[in-house]
């Protein structure tokens, strides 16, 4: 495998209701990431992640090309997935020797629609989607399965929310942050039992961009590049009845393939939009108490669709680039109840 590193990362402030359109959100983010890398355009490869269903229009990614800068024409591709998978595709392209540098970006503007209902259209269109189970209710089924298996309580879940919001105080891009009191959180009614508001992510709009470079190009672009030492992703059966929701076997497998356990982990950024999912992911990746999880506040405090996974990689890389971590694990998820998961292992040297 070639040495490939993240050399810059930028993201938009994650707002509940962003008045700018997708291109307007994306453009300054792409420009910031490119400027920080010091790499001159054109990039050898560009890849993005987004979903038409958020915009309610086909070819949502086509307009976004205006933000990427595609003139003269560029080698470019797109995944209808979280941008973390766009980063994977770009990494593959560099591994194949067909590129030395790559620009990766993602965007999602969920505020104009009813996101939990939009996500219901992700389900099996013949037997599940016609029932319109919304995304929060499905996550609640998973939370219940996990609590029953582990004996964990609503208080345990609330503690995850309290910690995440406290950490998000130092993240200027977070949608939700602050010093929450556990008793007050628990006094709120359930949205979908056992999940309360604090167990669920805010619906918000956002965008993020990452620049990748190989070998010497990375060393020139960044004082302390975040080297990708392993990256892998796996998918599980779609039907919720066909898997044990209290565990994440695809995260575990992706973590093993990416080599997450091959050394001490200083920081982990886990794409856990719901409190109980953080606990499930920690277990799947074998992250002990000593691992700092989601110092950014995580997806519980800012969850722009199709983007929050790429942000996890960007946040983890930032901890490497700023010297505060030596080895970091980033995770991204897609689909109902953690159906598909990606794990990326980053190191400072």
């Amino acid at each position: 495998m070639r040495d490939v590193a993240i050399v810059s990362f930028a993201q938009a402030p994650n707002r509940r209701r962003e008045l700018r359109n997708e291109v307007e959100i994306l453009m300054p983010v792409v420009q910031e990431a490119v400027a920080r890398s010091g790499i001159e355009r054109p990039f050898d490869f560009t890849c993005s992640g987004s979903s038409d269903f958020l915009q309610g229009q086909p070819f949502a990614f086509v307009i976004a090309l205006d933000a990427a800068g595609a003139w003269p024409p560029i080698p470019e591709s797109h995944v209808e997935m979280d941008g973390a998978w766009a980063l994977y595709e770009a990494w593959v392209k560099i591994q194949s020797g067909q590129a030395e540098t790559a620009l990766v970006y993602a965007f999602g503007k969920s505020s104009p629609g009813d996101l939990p209902e939009v996500l219901a259209t992700q389900l099996d269109p013949y037997v599940l989607a016609p029932l319109w189970p919304d995304a929060v209710s499905l996550a609640a089924l998973q939370a219940r399965a996990w609590m029953e298996k582990t004996g964990a309580t609503a208080r345990d879940l609330a503690a995850i929310a309290v910690r995440s919001r406290r950490d998000a105080k130092s993240n200027p891009n977070a949608t939700v942050s602050g010093d929450a009191e556990i008793e007050k959180l628990l006094a709120a009614p359930a949205i979908a039992d056992p999940l309360r508001a604090h167990d669920c992510p805010p619906v918000c709009d956002g965008a993020a961009a990452i620049v990748l470079a190989a070998g010497e190009r990375a060393r020139k672009a960044c004082a302390r590049p975040a080297w990708i030492r392993g990256i892998d992703h796996r998918i599980e059966p779609h039907s919720l009845g066909a898997r044990d929701l209290s565990v994440s076997v695809s995260t575990q497998l992706a973590g093993e393939k990416a080599g997450a356990g091959r050394g001490a982990v200083d920081v982990a950024e886990l794409h856990a939009p719901f409190t109980h999912q953080e606990a499930i992911l920690r277990e799947a990746l074998g992250l002990g108490e000593g691992v700092r999880v989601n110092p950014s506040g995580g997806a519980l405090c800012a969850n722009p669709m199709m983007t929050a996974g790429l942000i996890r990689i960007g946040e983890a890389a930032s901890r490497i680039m700023d010297g505060s971590a030596r080895r970091a694990v980033a995770h991204a998820t897609s689909g109902p109840c953690l159906q598909q998961n990606l794990v990326c292992v980053l190191e400072g040297a």
Partner: peptide, 26 residues
């Protein structure tokens, strides 16, 4: 009318336990 249908197609395409990528370039 199916958002990200690869999620639902993972079983039919024998992708369970494997990497699955979904491309969309018009």
């Amino acid at each position: 009318g199916v958002m990200m249908p690869e999620l639902y197609l993972a079983d039919a395409l024998g992708a369970v336990g494997k990497p699955m990528l979904r491309v969309h370039t018009a």
